[in-house]
Amino acid sequence: MMKKQVYIKKSNDEVELFSFEKLRQSLLNTGACLEVVETIVSKIQLEVYDGISSNDIYKKAFALLKKHNRISASRYSLKRAIFDLGPTGFPFERLISALLKEKGFNTKVSVILDGECVTHEIDVLAEKDGNVYAIECKFHSDAKGSSNVRVPLYINSRFLDVQKQWNTNSKNKTHLKQGWLVTNTRFTKDAIDYGKCIGLTLLSWDYPKNNGLKANIDSLALYPVTALTTLTKKEKHQLIDKNIVLIKELANATKTMKSIGISDLRIRRILNEVEKLCL
């Protein structure tokens, strides 16, 4: 079939030429087999039209993939699943804390620290090899949100205030080395350039290239409960309210699942999906 050219509307309202090859690759990255992927891409080709939103294309692809392979569908939904962690940013902070623990850091979430001028609440405080890192998590509940240069400017000023107090306090046996800024969407070019210039570590959905949030979550299988296809939206948020954010936490949460009305049969199905996703 000859590929048709289609211009789509992105979440930030920009219009661009849709890449069927990017769709194909994103579906292959979920672990779906080539035959299934080609079937989905062929169906999408017949249904897309100029002006269709990227969100509508995602919904079509997700529904088709879910019919063939629920595990692949869960992986494919990761970006939306992180948006669904809201409306507060705390579950996202828990996710970032867990990611850093997997990388050998000791972490604490929501820590109040004195600065030289004022006190600050640090989203995640991480320590490794005697060095401490103050991490600010900028959570957005939709894809239109991005972090411009004003955000790292503000975060760096807070970090410097805390760093000066921390490193001059003789009671601290560690060194507050660096500030980090993490977001689930993207940074503008100015934000990235400023971060590089001042030594502020930046982590977004796809930055740094091949080592962004998506790549790290996939490699560590740190999927949020909102990615599961075997849970309803209501159940996902009931679990988050009970401080269960990661799917791997469900392995020891049978009582909690029962307490929100999930049957034994569905619990087995949920845990089966969890096991396959965590492989």
Rank of each mutant, 00 (worst) to 15 (best):
L28D: 00
E93W: 01
Q45L: 09
I8V: 15
A98G: 08
D218S: 08
K242M: 12
K22E: 10
L265C: 09
K108W: 15
K258S: 14
G145H: 03
L99M: 12
N69P: 03
K60H: 09
K209G: 04
A134H: 00
W205G: 03
A73N: 01
T229P: 00
H68K: 15
D193V: 10
E102V: 08
G89D: 10
I57H: 01
E14V: 12
F20L: 07
G199M: 07
K22S: 11
L28I: 05
P224R: 02
L113D: 01
T256A: 07
L113K: 06
L99Y: 00
G104N: 07
I192L: 12
T39H: 12
G179S: 10
D218G: 02
P91T: 06
I112W: 10
H68T: 08
D114Y: 11
Q238S: 11
D264P: 13
N169L: 08
G199A: 08
L265H: 11
G145N: 02
N211M: 10
K233C: 10
S170M: 14
G31V: 04
K60Q: 13
L65N: 00
G51Q: 08
F18I: 00
C197I: 11
H175K: 14
D190A: 15
L250D: 04
L153H: 13
K9T: 15
L203N: 00
K79R: 15
S11M: 12
N106R: 14
P91M: 04
S54M: 09
L85R: 00
N131M: 13
L213V: 02
D114V: 08
I198Y: 05
T254S: 13
K138F: 04
E127M: 09
Q25N: 15
S157L: 14
G115R: 04
G130C: 08
S146F: 14
K255Q: 13
F159Q: 06
W205A: 06
V274K: 01
W180S: 02
L271T: 07
I267E: 05
C137Y: 02
N216R: 13
K128C: 05
V48S: 04
S72A: 15
Y58W: 13
G199F: 07
G86N: 05
I135L: 07
D114S: 15
V124S: 01
R70C: 07
N55S: 12
V151S: 01
K236F: 05
E121S: 09
E116V: 14
D264A: 14
I244V: 12
V225Q: 04
N148T: 10
I198K: 07
E235F: 06
G115V: 03
S146L: 12
N148C: 07
N184I: 06
I240H: 00
W205H: 06
A61K: 01
I244R: 01
A32D: 02
K171N: 13
I82N: 00
C197V: 11
D190M: 09
N69A: 07
D13A: 14
